[in-house]
Nucleic acid binder design. Structure first.
Length: 304
RNA sequence: GGGGAGAUACCAAAGUGGCCAACUGGGGCAGACUGUAAAUCUGUUGUCUGAUGACUUCGUAGGUUCGAAUCCUGCUCUCCCCA
């Protein structure tokens, strides 16, 4: 039987954790978490990371394995996950990957282009350029060094332009020439089953979960991370709103309702991303048994 | 009881005779996405239409005018001040 990676996407708050746990118990396999914020060991409550009891029941990977001060990225995740999978497949022909980080999931399923790391000094230089000259300065610079990418990039989005400039300057090669968008051949089968819910119900669950996080001590968790609020890892729903409260900018109530709103937005954004992935078979949370049996049938189906 | 201010689209808020289906912000909805992605960015938001365009809107009922969200009158409601 060919090794299979069961990919389980779903919007935040839909109930993936519990579902994946149940599935892993039945299949006796490990879970790879694909949640770029559950990676951080200091952010357990706000990211609804699996708790100790759940972690003890099924072996998880990539949960709380780095610190907010560490550098990590999609490509590192792809590398680490691809290094780990063969080991996991030695123990079981099936591995589950669940989570909400869309790009990270795609990186494992399809791979990303090999692009060299950027030089931090270069990065700093362009950050300053953005400060001084704004987005138009970045645009002009990009048009000079990589007109091909300039023609297709979102010229309103500083992140994209900065990235292209950094790579081009660090390597001396236009960023666009790295972009071949290959679909990497994986030596395991990928089965994608998405978990979804009616929107109103999902929103109610999200609201309830935010309240539960506050009761579970999210405030203390965020306070202990206040000194790191400038780090990217903390630019995350649930933390940045509380930081604004701590700074006296908004009230506690405002912070909580903003967390709810931003979590709902995130859930929608996730669905937008996955909507274009035709390989995902979606199941409503009310049809969990149907989903289990669909997955089991796919596993019995031995064709590559 | 007397005096004053105001009622604008989901919310807030501009507009004070034609350039107004109505600035702007928020929210909603939709979308993009190749390296810190729970990030970053975009579009749209009266109705019908593929688009031109058509139709109904600015508390309410009338009036003035070629033309009104904008001017006048009555009514309803809200707020403030003095009693």
């Amino acid at each position: 039987m060919k090794n299979t990676l069961i990919v389980l996407p779903g919007p935040t708050g839909v109930g993936k954790t519990g579902f994946a746990l149940e599935l892993a118990s039945r299949l006796r396999c490990d879970i790879i978490s694909c949640d770029s914020r559950q990676f951080y060991r200091e952010m357990k409550i706000g990211t609804a990371a699996p708790d100790d009891e759940q972690l003890a029941r099924v072996r998880h990977h990539f949960v709380g394995f780095i610190s907010v001060t560490d550098y990590y990225s999609v490509s590192l995740f792809e590398r680490d996950a691809m290094a780990l999978l063969p080991k996991l497949f030695e123990a079981s022909p099936v591995v589950i990957m669940t989570g909400g980080s869309m790009l990270y999931m795609d990186a494992v399923c399809r791979g990303m282009d090999d692009i060299p790391d950027t030089d931090p000094a270069v990065r700093q230089r362009y950050a300053e350029m953005y400060q001084k000259e704004g987005i138009s300065g970045l645009r002009m610079a990009l048009r000079m060094v990589d007109p091909e990418y300039y023609a297709k990039v979102d010229l309103h989005n500083p992140r994209r332009i900065l990235r292209a400039l950094e790579i081009t300057a660090s390597t001396g090669i236009p960023y666009s020439s790295f972009l071949t968008a290959p679909v990497r051949e994986r030596d395991f089968r990928i089965v994608k089953a998405g978990l979804t819910r009616e929107r109103g119900e999902l929103y109610r669950r999200i609201d309830a979960r935010v309240d539960a996080m506050m009761n579970a001590g999210l405030e203390e968790e965020a306070r202990s991370l206040l000194e790191y609020k400038g780090l990217n890892a903390l630019n995350t729903v649930g933390y940045r709103e509380l930081f604004r409260w701590f700074d006296g900018e908004i009230s506690r109530e405002e912070a909580i309702s903003l967390i709810k709103r931003n979590t709902r937005r995130y859930a929608r954004k996730q669905m937008t991303w996955w909507n274009r992935d035709n390989d995902i078979n979606w199941f409503d949370a009310s049809e969990e048994e149907m989903m289990f049996s669909w997955i089991e049938r796919r596993l019995e189906d031995n064709r590559p």
